[in-house]
């Protein structure tokens, strides 16, 4: 493998049912930063795969893609790991990018490792940051042990240098309506013939998210095991709705079914959030959870145990019973509202 043959930073954009996943924009923002760190800048390219997806290309341009490779085919309507992998592996072998980034989403985490074996290269999994070192190589920062430890991962002798990035960690770059970009079409027909058809998508089922999505909320009201019951959990729902925020949680409330589903969980196996204000009630502060909220703006924690580890990552500590504090807070906010109306 002649490393010099490989040039350019690629972002595999993720779309579903004609809607781009916002992690694609985060990746483009990071790709632009990496471009500046390289010894000689290399172009930033987005790859868009699906059916009838070309109209999404300008959006990728606005967030930093200089070239958009559109791979449009009816056979690519729904994600099928083997099918997508055949197409992308051929594209990578033909165009030889040096760096390839994907979102650590349900699909990205499945697809990236397959490509790693197919094109014979290393993949750094769900990174929290990326940079270029003095050897002009990509350094991926990956969390281990539930986020307690961070490690640098390099891929010095193989190309492309691949990494998946955890959604929500980097933040979305500024949109540029005047951006210049080119669109290139790529015909996947030959690659599709190689697909043995061992994996067939039958259908997609998505849950409607009520209210503000957790990852976009500017106020997050999170609760843990110490809330004690589904009934008490209503306090969090009420406070979040009073503030126009979203409810997040640790793992036990998911298991107890106090929340609708795992999409409300914050942490290593859940979402990464960085709201302006995070209010955490009855959460101990396990590494697994903290890893997903540590970059929030103002962190307020309520716990009856003065030694709870969550207090070490909090700006405001309240030692006390979560139910009592939250009930009173709700009451006071309602009073304030009452005065306005």
């Amino acid at each position: 493998m002649n490393l010099k043959d490989y040039q350019g930073i690629w972002v595999i954009a993720e779309q579903m049912a004609g809607c781009l996943n916002s992690v694609s924009f985060e990746l483009l923002g990071k790709a632009q930063e990496l471009k500046k760190q390289l010894q000689t800048p290399e172009p930033v390219t987005a790859v868009l795969v699906g059916k009838d997806v070309e109209e999404l290309a300008p959006e990728l341009g606005a967030y930093g893609a200089e070239e958009i490779i559109v791979v449009d085919h009816p056979g690519l309507e729904l994600y099928q790991n083997q099918t997508y992998a055949e197409v992308l592996a051929d594209l990578i072998k033909e165009k030889k990018p040096s760096i390839l980034l994907m979102g650590a989403t349900g699909i990205g985490q499945d697809l990236a490792p397959i490509l790693g074996v197919k094109v014979n290269t290393g993949v750094a999994a769900h990174c929290v940051d990326l940079r270029i070192n003095q050897d002009n190589n990509l350094v991926a920062v990956v969390p281990a042990f539930g986020g307690k430890v961070l490690g640098d991962i390099l891929c010095p002798k193989h190309r492309p240098q691949m990494a998946t990035l955890k959604p929500g960690v980097l933040g979305k770059p500024e949109r540029n309506n005047q951006a210049h970009y080119t669109i290139t079409k790529y015909d996947p027909a030959e690659s599709l013939k190689k697909d043995a058809g061992r994996v067939k998508a039958l259908g997609i089922y998505r849950q409607e998210v009520k209210g503000v999505p957790l990852e976009e909320a500017e106020i997050v009201v999170a609760g843990g095991w110490g809330m004690g019951s589904k009934e008490n959990w209503q306090l969090l729902e009420e406070l979040a709705s009073l503030l126009g925020g979203a409810v997040g949680c640790t793992r036990p409330p998911v298991d107890e079914k106090w929340v609708e589903g795992e999409h409300q969980m914050i942490g290593t196996s859940g979402k990464t959030v960085r709201p302006k204000v995070y209010i955490g009630a009855a959460i101990s502060g396990a590494t697994h959870h903290v890893c997903g909220m540590k970059d929030s703006g103002l962190v307020i924690s309520i716990n009856k145990d003065p030694k709870a580890p969550i207090f070490e990552v909090s700006d405001i500590r309240i030692v006390g019973d979560a139910k009592t504090i939250l009930s009173k807070l709700i009451e006071e906010i309602k009073k304030i509202r009452g005065n306005v109306n």
Binding site: G116, N120, T121, G122, V123, A124, V139, P143, G147, K148, V149, L150, G151, D152, I153, L154, C155, P156, K157, H158, V290, C291, K294, V299, S301, F311, E312, V313, S314, D315, I316, R317, I318, V319, G320, T324, I325, K328
Partner: peptide
Amino acid sequence: SPTQPGDIYTPELGRKGQELTGEV
């Protein structure tokens, strides 16, 4: 292994928390 480990470190987490005290 195509990927090779570099440095390891622990993330900076500490915040100077202020405790709110008194009656509810």
